[in-house]
Amino acid sequence: MIYFELFYTFFLIGLFTFGGGYAMIPMIQEQVVGKGWISADALTNFIAISEATPGPFALNISTFVGKEVGGVLGSVMSTIGVVLPSLIIIIIIAMIMKKFITNKYVKGALNGVKPVVLALILSTSLVMLIKVLFFRGTSLKGELEFDMKSFTLLIMISGYLFIHKKVMKKGLSPILLLGLSALLGLIVFY
């Protein structure tokens, strides 16, 4: 049943998310795009919308995917699924394991998982970049076709980001970055 599957999938994703919302993206891609629930294109759109709307990214993206796959009830199931591991684990820790973060095995496990999460997000972004630049954004199969427009956009935005950081001494906020990409997208692709 789709509702149970959504719940279970997002429960797993919540359970294996270490280090914030973006760490979920590799798993969402494997599970949700892999099962054919939504397209890779739709997922990047949802990421953009989830980042540009208020609320934690992790909750926004879960609600969005759930709604697309299983309607309103689907979004309820995926959102509950993604928060439930947190709820259970944090309550247990608050109840019985106050010394949790000073435990050396917990520290060790975190030292082991951090490089993995970093590598997974990097790999996902590299694959996305290659898809956008050479494969019309969908899969890694088919004919190679260099997308000059996306490349131009990439150079323009990262160039601006670089200058902004040098001049303002701080990074551009994600919302402004997305606003800029949207505007440039409209100019370049329309």
Partner: peptide, 24 residues
């Protein structure tokens, strides 16, 4: 027009992901 916007956003999302890597 929205399809064009989302094509631009796709590039933005990729840049966001790369900067998340740098931050983490």
């Amino acid at each position: 027009a929205l399809q064009a916007i989302f094509k631009g956003l796709k590039v933005g999302v990729i840049i966001l992901l790369f900067s998340a890597v740098l931050k983490l």
